[in-house]
């Protein structure tokens, strides 16, 4: 992490002045507080497993970034993660040989849900808030209906290893969780994508859809692709989460608000047109650091949401006052 900060961030910071500074500052403060309490937190093994644990929410934040920067919302990702985990358990039914086909099915399912969200939002003119809220109700209802109220089947060890196994005995780092490698690959892809023509088009669409449309951008297609990316990222997150914590109807509960909060913490404007995917992912990492911090400082589970709420309000208030005074 320290390596990443010193090498990568200054360059990005130069490219987009002030864009990433607030979130990096908050992250550093939280990391310092964490290290004061738990000096070995930044030691490679614990840091590695922390990053592995954070992978799902960081992936969701990256997916949500594309949707939000294009000016829309995706409230369906939490229910999509739950649905994916439950579907995976039922399809695999503890049969190792089905693991890979099911991974493919999940990715396709995620893309399909994103496609439906995108097409309904752009072609039928339904506000994405309502589209994805409806999708949330549909997915939660469907998954309960399909499994008669209790998750069935089970995940194979083959499937679960993505979320909870690691390369052991790596020199210097100790162990590298598979989840972290998947995250790094996806993050690299997301950064490339956000700096490609498509990524810039998407920001233009979010900034002013009319102008973008008049300049020849097919707005509906750009937005639909953003929703598909969000759906696929939810599929990846579900694969990791299912592996890490197993099957439950609560697997994805509240993740949509977590992802949106992370994206906004990372300096991406709700309503679109401004922000970077790196900021969004750092926002998610900050949120996870905050949870770790509360664990180490012994904040009782129930009060966690209060502290979380207060810090989110504070962070967003500070950055919005800063940006408006500039």
């Amino acid at each position: 992490m320290r390596i990443a900060e010193s090498r990568v961030l200054p360059r990005f910071a130069r490219v987009r002045p002030g864009g990433l500074a607030p979130i990096v500052a908050i992250l550093v403060v939280l990391l310092v507080l964490l290290t004061l309490r738990q000096p070995d937190f930044l030691s490679p093994p614990s840091l590695m497993s922390f990053l592995g644990r954070s992978a799902p929410i960081v992936l969701l934040a990256a997916g949500q970034y594309f949707v939000i920067v294009s000016g829309e919302f995706d409230l369906s990702v939490g229910s999509l993660v739950t649905a994916q985990v439950v579907v995976a358990a039922r399809l695999i039914d503890s049969e190792p040989s089905r693991s890979w086909p099911v991974v493919v099915v999940l990715l396709a399912f995620g893309a399909l849900v994103g496609l439906v969200n995108g097409v309904v939002t752009t072609r039928l003119g339904v506000p994405s808030f309502i589209t994805t809220l409806g999708m949330f109700l549909i997915l939660v209802g469907a998954v309960y209906l399909w499994s008669d109220g209790a998750p069935k089947g089970g995940l194979s060890e083959e499937f679960r290893r993505f979320g909870r196994r690691a390369f052991e005995d790596v020199p210097a780092l100790g162990r590298i969780p598979y989840a972290l490698l998947i995250l790094l690959a996806a993050a690299a892809l997301a950064v490339l994508l956000s700096r490609s023509d498509f990524g810039r088009t998407l920001v233009a669409v979010g900034g002013n859809p009319r102008t973008a449309g008049l300049s020849g951008v097919r707005v509906w297609r750009a937005k639909t692709i953003a929703f598909v990316l969000s759906g696929v990222s939810a599929a990846l997150a579900a694969i990791l989460l299912g592996g890490y914590s197993g099957v439950s109807f609560q697997a994805g509960a509240g993740l949509e608000f977590g992802a949106i909060t992370a994206v906004v913490l990372g300096g991406v404007a709700l309503g679109g047109g401004r922000g970077s995917v790196v900021g969004a992912m750092l926002g998610a990492l900050t949120l996870e650091t905050l949870f770790a911090l509360m664990n180490f400082y012994g904040v009782s589970g129930a009060l966690k949401s209060t502290v979380q709420g207060a810090i989110i309000l504070l962070a967003v208030a500070v950055s919005s006052v800063r940006s408006s005074s500039r």
Binding site: G271, S305, A317
Partner: peptide, 28 residues
């Protein structure tokens, strides 16, 4: 006040306040 004076997006502001209340309710 959060939406107007602190200029926080209403979505985030009210989700944040909701979290504050959720913590109070879950804890008590």
């Amino acid at each position: 006040l959060l939406v107007t004076k602190a200029r926080i997006n209403a979505f985030i502001a009210t989700v944040g306040v909701g979290l504050l209340l959720k913590g109070y309710l879950d804890n008590g």
